[in-house]
Amino acid sequence: MKNKRNLLAGPYLVWSVAFIIIPLIMVFYYGFIDRDGAFTLENIMAIASPEHSKALWISIRLSLISTVICFLLAYPLAMILANMSVNQNQFIVLVFILPMWMNFLLRTLAWQTLLEKNGVINSVLKFLSLPTINIINTEAAIILGMVYNFLPFMVLPIYNSLARMDHDVINAARDLGANNVQTFLRIIFPLSIPGVVSGVTMVFVPALTTFVISAILGGSKILLIGNVIEQEFTQASNWNLGSGLSIVLMIFIIISMVISSILDKDGEGNML
């Protein structure tokens, strides 16, 4: 019986071997050889070159800023949603999820159209004789794109952890003399940390690896590590260097995963 049920996992197993395991092995294979097929660490060490380490540093910095902004926007919203009844908050959740039904690329292209020098926003501002904004092809535009695209991934896990909190625990804190601020700092926030950690991971990791947002909203003027890797594969056709840099990026992702799994001991936040 048990074996039969295991067979049901077969299609997925085939899938994951073909499209996850084998590509991963290939990335590692290419990452550790040079163009002639000899073993080398050069592709890995290439991260130390000024242009690569700069791209990695910008990626980390922009992802961190985006993650912090997402957190600051998401936490109050999640609290408001959690304090509403399910009937009340359904509409707001819907409004929130609605853009997610649209293709990621389309959403980002829409922002490009909005932000362009002669784009929608500036046309309106000009029409109203207001000063125009000029943030397309800057770091600010990339951060905006990251925040816009990844915000729901921060809201939902935090909302989950807040909504599942036993209301009597909060009442107990009030009952024991804590005012609203003390209750939040000592009880509500610490109990929501699994959700926060999960949200941070789900924003930080895709933001760190994105190349689409920076390509569209950064106008290929600002290179993130994702763009560098993409160019090595598609333009320079240097699969070895692209693989080597990918491995380095994977190490950073694994580090952030380890940190989050330490903070989220119960795995509570991963219930999205």
Binding site: V169, A172, R174, N179, I187, L191
Partner: peptide
């Protein structure tokens, strides 16, 4: 509640799990 001279024992204990 935080200004009242009484304390409550809740039905499901409501201990602070962290």
């Amino acid at each position: 509640p935080n200004k009242r001279q009484l304390n409550t024992v809740f039905q499901k204990y409501a201990l602070f799990t962290h």
